Amino acid sequence: SLTLTVRGEEAVRRWYKWAQAHNLEVEVETHGDEYVLHIK
């Protein structure tokens, strides 16, 4: 499992696509303009 902090929706989309390509689940938490992604 992997936890990432990114800024901006574009980065979130990029990681989301990456995770889907690897059959992984993604949980997204929003903290202001930062997003915490939990990839499992």
Rank of each mutant, 00 (worst) to 15 (best):
Q20S: 10
H31F: 12
T5I: 15
V28G: 02
A11Q: 09
V26N: 00
Y16K: 15
D33R: 05
T3W: 07
T30V: 15
R7M: 11
T3M: 08
E29C: 04
V28K: 04
V6A: 03
V12R: 05
V28S: 04
A19W: 02
K17E: 15
H22K: 06
V12D: 01
Y16H: 10
R7Y: 13
G32L: 05
L24Y: 14
E25F: 12
W15E: 01
E34R: 10
N23I: 02
V26F: 14
E34A: 10
T30D: 11
H31A: 09
V36W: 06
E29W: 10
K40Q: 09
H38A: 03
V26H: 01
A19V: 05
H38W: 06
K17R: 11
R13G: 08
E9A: 10
E27S: 13
L37G: 00
H31Y: 12
H31T: 07
T3K: 11
L4H: 04
G8H: 06
T30L: 13
D33V: 06
V28L: 10
T5M: 10
E27I: 15
V12H: 02
L2S: 04
T30K: 15
H31L: 11
T3E: 07
V12C: 03
E9K: 11
V36K: 07
E34S: 11
V28Q: 04
V26S: 01
E29P: 01
L37H: 00
H38R: 11
Y16T: 15
V26M: 14
E29H: 11
N23A: 09
E27K: 11
V28R: 02
L2R: 05
E10F: 06
V12W: 06
N23Y: 07
L37A: 01
E29R: 08
A11R: 05
E9I: 14
R13S: 10
T5F: 06
A19G: 03
E29S: 09
I39K: 00
T30M: 13
A19Y: 02
T5R: 14
E25S: 12
A19P: 00
A21I: 11
Q20A: 13
K40A: 08
E10N: 07
E27D: 10
E10G: 07
G32A: 06
Y35G: 01
V6I: 09
H38T: 14
D33S: 08
R14Q: 14
I39S: 00
A21W: 10
T30C: 04
K40E: 05
T5L: 12
L24Q: 03
R13Q: 13
E29F: 12
T30E: 14
W18Y: 07
V36F: 07
S1M: 13
E29N: 05
R7G: 05
D33Q: 08
D33A: 08
R7E: 06
E10P: 05
R14G: 10
K17G: 08
Y35L: 05
K17D: 12
L4F: 09
H22L: 09
R7T: 12
E25P: 05
T30A: 14
A11N: 11
L2H: 08
R14F: 15
Y35H: 06
L24F: 14
E10Y: 07
K17S: 11
W15L: 08
L4D: 01
E29T: 12
H22A: 06
I39R: 00
H31R: 14
D33W: 04
H38G: 02
V36S: 03
W15S: 01
I39D: 00
R7A: 08
I39P: 00
Y35P: 03
H38M: 06
L37I: 14
Y35W: 09
S1E: 15
V6D: 01
H38S: 06
E27A: 11
G8S: 14
R13K: 14
E10M: 07
E34Q: 11
R14M: 14
A21Y: 12
H31V: 12
E29K: 08
K17P: 01
G32P: 04
K17F: 10
Q20Y: 10
T5Y: 07
G32M: 05
K17I: 13
E10Q: 08
E29A: 07
V26L: 12
Q20I: 14
E27N: 09
W15P: 00
K40D: 04
E10W: 08
E9D: 09
N23L: 07
W18P: 00
E34P: 02
N23W: 06
A11S: 08
V28D: 01
S1F: 11
V26E: 00
A11F: 05
V6N: 01
V36D: 02
L37V: 09
Y35S: 04
Q20K: 11
G32D: 08
Q20H: 11
R14P: 03
A11W: 06
V36C: 03
E34K: 10
T3V: 11
G32C: 02
L4V: 15
E29Y: 11
E9G: 05
E29M: 09
G8P: 02
V28E: 03
L37D: 00
G8N: 10
L4G: 02
L24D: 01
L24V: 06
G8L: 04
R14A: 15
V36A: 03
E34W: 15
S1Y: 13
W18A: 02
H31I: 12
E9M: 13
W18E: 01
R13P: 01
Y16N: 06
A11E: 14
E27H: 13
G32Y: 05
L2M: 12
G8F: 05
K17Q: 13
E9Q: 09
T3D: 05
G8W: 04
R14D: 10
T30H: 14
V6Y: 02
I39W: 02
T3P: 04
H38V: 11
T30F: 12
H22M: 10
R13F: 08
L24T: 02
V36T: 11
E25W: 12
V12K: 06
H31N: 12
Y16P: 00
T5W: 06
R14E: 13
A21G: 06
A21N: 08
I39C: 02
Q20F: 08
E34N: 10
E29L: 09
W18H: 02
I39V: 05
L2P: 04
N23F: 09
E34L: 15
L37Q: 00
V12N: 01
V12S: 03
E10R: 07
T3Q: 09
T5V: 15
V36N: 03
E10I: 08
R14L: 14
L24W: 11
E10A: 12
I39H: 00
K17Y: 10
R7S: 10
A21T: 09
A21F: 11
E25N: 10
E10K: 08
E25A: 10
R14Y: 15
S1W: 14
S1N: 13
N23S: 09
R7Q: 12
A19D: 00
L4N: 02
T5G: 03
A21L: 13
R13M: 12
I39G: 00
K40R: 14
I39T: 01
E34I: 15
G8E: 07
T3F: 03
D33H: 08
Y16W: 11
N23E: 07
I39F: 13
H31Q: 10
V12E: 02
E29I: 11
G32Q: 05
A19N: 01
E25Q: 13
L37Y: 00
K40Y: 15
L37K: 00
A11M: 10
L24A: 06
E9N: 06
T30P: 13
A11K: 05
T30S: 13
A19I: 07
L37M: 07
R14T: 09
A19T: 03
V36I: 14
T5H: 14
R7F: 12
Y35V: 06
E25D: 11
E34H: 15
E27V: 14
K17V: 12
N23P: 01
K40G: 11
I39Q: 00
K17M: 13
E27F: 13
R13T: 11
H31P: 02
R14V: 11
E34T: 14
Q20T: 12
N23H: 11
A19R: 00
H38F: 08
T5D: 02
E27G: 05
N23Q: 08
H31K: 13
L4R: 03
D33N: 10
E34D: 10
L4P: 02
Q20N: 10
T3Y: 04
L24C: 05
R7N: 09
Y35E: 02
R7K: 14
E34F: 15
A21E: 14
Q20V: 12
L4S: 02
H38P: 00
E27P: 00
R7L: 10
Y16F: 15
